[in-house]
Simulated assay, not measured.
Amino acid sequence: MHKKLVACTLAAVAALAAGTVQAEGPWMVRARAVYLSWDNGNADGLQDAGVGKVSADKRWIPEVDISYFFTKNIAAELVLTYPQNVDIKTGALGGIGHVQALPPSLLLQYHFTDLGAFKPYVGLGLNYTIFTKDSFNTGLGKVSVDGSSWGLAAQVGLDYMIDKNWSLNVDAKYIQMDTDVKLGGTKIGKLDLNPVTYGVGVGYRF
């Protein structure tokens, strides 16, 4: 299913690339401070293993994205950050360690451009999370997670154009992200991270 989603997304981007780019510069780069709020859903197996509810701590992270406008309304956005520490804690043991997650996303966007300096937009695409440090030891044994996760990503945002190049930006995204959790090599359940992110930052178009 994930491979089909990737193929459909790339096909849509390729089709739109044939469109005419508007007179303004087609590139936009944004830098944001983003608050990462995890859903922290748990399968019953995690509680049955005797560790209680497993959760990841909420945090602020830096984010950079690069957008390309195929037309004045249609753009693709690549969302990037560096590998982030995800602190894991349990109801029974408290903090037990952390994993590192690198979660780039690629979204296809529609921008509403007839509201003067206000440029709201919506986006839909894919997230691919790579867990670069995916295990740690606890008093119960070695805890590990899957090496990667695919999921859908959706966003709403707003650019306020200060001039033809510079803008202020607010943005919110929902990202599907889950991973199997294993204790001593045995799967004990699934941790549904599914973060909602809230960002504020600046953009430059050229």
Rank of each mutant, 00 (worst) to 15 (best):
M1H: 15
K3T: 15
K4L: 15
K4V: 15
L5P: 05
V6K: 14
A7W: 11
A7D: 13
A7K: 12
L10S: 14
A11F: 09
V13P: 12
A15T: 07
L16H: 12
L16Q: 11
A18D: 13
T20S: 15
M28D: 11
A33K: 07
V34D: 05
S37T: 06
N40G: 03
A43S: 14
Q47Y: 15
G50R: 03
G50W: 04
G50N: 04
G52R: 01
K53S: 09
K58M: 14
K58A: 12
I61V: 08
P62E: 02
E63S: 03
D65E: 08
I66Y: 08
S67M: 07
Y68D: 09
F70V: 08
K72S: 05
I74A: 05
L78C: 06
T81G: 05
N85H: 13
I88P: 07
T90Q: 00
G94I: 01
G94M: 01
G95F: 13
G95L: 11
G97M: 02
G97P: 01
H98L: 10
V99H: 10
V99E: 09
A101Y: 13
A101T: 08
H111I: 09
F112K: 14
D114N: 13
D114V: 10
D114E: 14
G116N: 13
A117I: 09
A117H: 06
F118Q: 08
K119I: 12
K119P: 09
P120T: 02
G125I: 04
N127E: 11
I130G: 11
T132Q: 06
D134G: 00
S135T: 04
N137I: 12
K142F: 15
V143W: 01
V143P: 03
V145C: 00
V145D: 00
V145S: 00
L152V: 09
L152D: 06
A153D: 04
V156R: 06
G157C: 05
L158V: 12
D159A: 06
Y160E: 12
N165T: 07
N165V: 08
W166S: 05
S167C: 03
V170L: 10
A172M: 14
Y174D: 13
I175N: 04
M177T: 07
M177Q: 09
D178G: 10
T179A: 05
T179K: 04
L183I: 08
L183Q: 09
L183K: 07
L183F: 10
G184M: 02
G185P: 05
T186G: 11
I188Y: 05
L191W: 00
N194H: 09
V196N: 11
V196W: 11
V196L: 13
G199N: 11
V202F: 03
G203I: 07
Y204C: 02
R205A: 10
R205E: 08
R205G: 10
F206I: 01
